[in-house]
Design a binder for these strands. Structure first.
Lengths: 207, 207
DNA sequence: CCTACCGATCGGTAGG
DNA sequence: CCTACCGATCGGTAGG
């Protein structure tokens, strides 16, 4: 095997183990030694690939941000239809984080550990997408498909929170099965958004 | 300053500052020195009151658990009526954590940092209360007041999650105001639970 | 509640 | 990618 490609592999292995450890024990609760041990190299060798613990954190987070910068535009632009799009976006969100719950735990930890940095990142990189979804909701409201009492921005934040924190804490709680929890999440999100409902025609709910 | 009552006061001040720091930076991210500095004493003096950092963590958590062991029985037993009780329990939950968001952040961190311990605690101390609420929901379902498709246990877990994580992360996100976020949370929780819809006037109508 | 101090471990560097 | 090693800081103790 050519030695040229090996460097990339070890870098990825470091990122993988760093994600695992940061997610499970937090950035402060993880030592560079822990990660080096998990990778199977010495501490100074790890610090050759990532010159500081802080830069390792950044690299781990950038990997996740990259995913969403790629996935979100397509998801939100393509569909454009109400309920189908809703399923697609929430499904993608749930799928991404349940595929590796460490991602959700990492994001929740980052929100708690570095509020100011997250706030800045959110304002520039995530807020625009929240607004796009909120506008979709407002359009649905004027068309009578979506409950008029929904607060679009607040609703979107709650759903993201529900998915993120739900996945992050699920295994620590173990009250109900993954499947029941996810099914109920989608039911809750839908019943709080759409007006029509399968068996309940809402007539004269409001004056 | 009277010396007699001072010992109790300093203990409480240590607990207060420990809560603040553990909530903001995590247990591993906080040093005993940090807390001692905030209190205004030396590190060994703090360690006289709480013989180890670990015992300080336990004391902080016990204070919170005590509150709920006192409050929950009354809340759940007294009311017994559907929607009124729902408002009371969710209101108490929201009120307790919004009164001091550090509490919410502390609990979320504990769930992430110590999954096994939390699981044990949940099974013995919290699970019974979830079951009580779930049974209330099932009774409401058989009476036709509550949506038949609600998964009681999963629903309760989601609502707790929504309150806890919502409060814990709110100031780090700053997307919408506290008030809008809380109002939408209650709307979302209600619309996902009850069949009839609004028996009370919706104040502050927009449009 | 303090000063003085401990061994262990932290993130990181030198130098090959 | 390694061995050897650094100053700083960690939680905690001794002893008053």
């Amino acid at each position: 095997m050519p030695a040229a490609g090996a460097k990339v592999l070890i870098r990825d292995k470091i990122l993988l183990e760093a994600t695992r450890h940061f997610a499970a024990r937090g950035f402060e609760g993880t030592t560079v030694q822990d990660i080096a041990d998990a990778v199977g190299i010495r501490k100074p060798s790890l610090l050759y690939h990532f010159p500081s613990k802080e830069e390792l954190r950044q690299a781990v987070l950038e990997g996740m941000l990259e995913h969403w910068n790629r996935a979100l535009p397509g998801l939100l632009a393509a569909a454009s239809s109400g309920e189908g799009q809703f399923e697609a976006v929430v499904g993608e969100l749930l799928g991404f984080f349940t595929a590796d719950p460490d991602r959700a735990r990492l994001v929740v930890r980052e929100i708690l550990d570095r509020p100011t940095e997250v706030k800045r990142l959110l304002a520039t990189a995530i807020r625009p997408w929240i607004d796009v979804v909120a506008d979709h909701i407002r359009r649905g409201q004027s068309q009578g498909r979506i409950r008029p009492d929904v607060d679009p921005e607040a609703y979107v934040v709650h759903i993201i929170n529900l998915v993120l924190s739900g996945v992050a804490t699920h295994h620590s709680l173990g009250v109900v099965s993954d499947e029941r929890q996810q099914r109920e999440l989608i039911r809750l999100a839908k019943s709080g958004l759409f007006l029509h409902e399968s068996s309940e025609p809402t007539r004269g709910a409001e004056t």
